[in-house]
Each structure stands twice: as C-alpha cells, then as structure tokens.
C-alpha cells in the first residue's frame, strides 16, 4: 500500500478556513489526507499543539493564516 500521510491543518476562520470553504464551492479537488481544525486566528495555535500533533503520529502539520 502506498504511503498515505496524515496531515493536521490549523486554519484561521477568517482566511484559510474560508479559503478551504471556497475550494469546496469551486469544487477544486485535492488529496483527502488533510484534517482541518478551525481556529479563530492562526495566532491561537499554541506551539504545544504542533508538538502534540506530531507526537501523536501526524506526518505533517500546517498552520494556515
């Protein structure tokens, strides 16, 4: 089986989360490996969250804002 990475993305409610919504509206297709966590601002993402995610098996973490 091919490698299927697990990616956690922290998305800001006002920009990248909205952009991900729009990607949907525009039916843009992208890989299914990403799991989005909505935050009210990327500044809310504590460094601990990134470490947590990696420690629990995420292959990548994105902070988008």
């Amino acid at each position: 089986m091919s490698f299927e990475p697990k990616i956690v993305a922290f998305c800001c409610n006002w920009c990248s989360y909205a952009a991900a919504d729009l990607a949907g509206t525009a039916r843009m297709q992208y890989p299914h490996n990403v799991r989005i966590i909505r935050v009210m601002c990327s500044g809310m993402v504590h460094p601990e969250f990134v470490m947590d995610a990696l420690a629990q098996g995420a292959d990548g973490v994105m902070v988008l804002g």
Partner: peptide
C-alpha cells in the same frame, strides 16, 4: 465544503 465537494 471540506469533503464531499473536494473529494468527489
């Protein structure tokens, strides 16, 4: 938006 529309 984050699923059915982008992983059709």
């Amino acid at each position: 938006n984050h699923n059915s529309w982008v992983h059709g």
